[in-house]
């Protein structure tokens, strides 16, 4: 119980102290901790149409969302083509569905350059989906670069895990 109370108390204190002239007096501090601030989200369960449940069914290929890349590469490897095919088909059959493709990189090198590399990986997935009939307006490709690593160890297997594009549907990001 104590364990859970402490962070809550601390954040309450931070708020109280902010107004009482605590640390950082004079600097205007904005807290952007609310998840998804500024993003209009629609939850998948509210979506009409068929086959939505497939997105979260672990036995369905559509529940798989990650496409992995080689070092310094943004080429979709043949082993991921069936996954791209399945999601393209789903987007064609569910034209109301929107997808966010997030590209990621490992941590080596410049943050901004990695952001651009991650964008290439996201854009490659978007282009592959569009080639199979998904509409441009359905898919936004963005990059998280090296900023949101799924794996934080400094090993080759970890780097490989982070060289990835994720396909997320409305309500999942």
């Amino acid at each position: 119980m104590k364990k859970y109370l402490l962070p809550a108390l601390l954040s309450a204190l931070l708020v109280a102290c902010g107004s009482a002239g605590g640390p950082g007096t004079g600097a205007a501090v904005e807290d952007r901790t609310a998840p998804g601030a500024g993003v209009a989200t629609v939850t998948a369960s509210e979506m009409p149409g068929s086959g939505i449940a497939a997105l979260t069914d672990p036995n369905n290929i559509l529940s798989r969302r990650g496409i992995y890349f080689d070092f310094d590469s943004f080429v979709i490897k043949p082993e991921f083509q069936p996954l791209v095919d399945a999601h393209a088909r789903f987007l064609v059959q569910n034209p109301q569905m929107r997808m966010l493709v997030q590209g990621n990189t490992d941590e080596r090198g410049s943050r901004e350059y990695n952001l651009a590399l991650g964008q290439k990986r996201a854009e490659a997935v978007k282009q592959a989906l569009m080639l199979l009939g998904a509409r441009e307006a359905q898919i936004e490709s963005v990059s998280l670069g090296e900023e949101k690593p799924r794996c934080t160890e400094r090993s080759e297997s970890c780097f490989a895990e982070n060289r990835r594009s994720d396909m997320l549907y409305s309500g999942e990001f």
């Binding site: 600097a27 904005e30 998804g36 601030a37 993003v39 966010l100 997030q102 998280l144 949101k148």
Partner: peptide
């Protein structure tokens, strides 16, 4: 650049007022 809306967005932040 802030990722607070789950993607990179560019802000300009005025330090004296805190307005962004």
């Amino acid at each position: 650049v802030s990722f607070e809306s789950k993607k990179p967005v560019v802000y300009v932040h005025d330090l004296p007022t805190g307005q962004r």
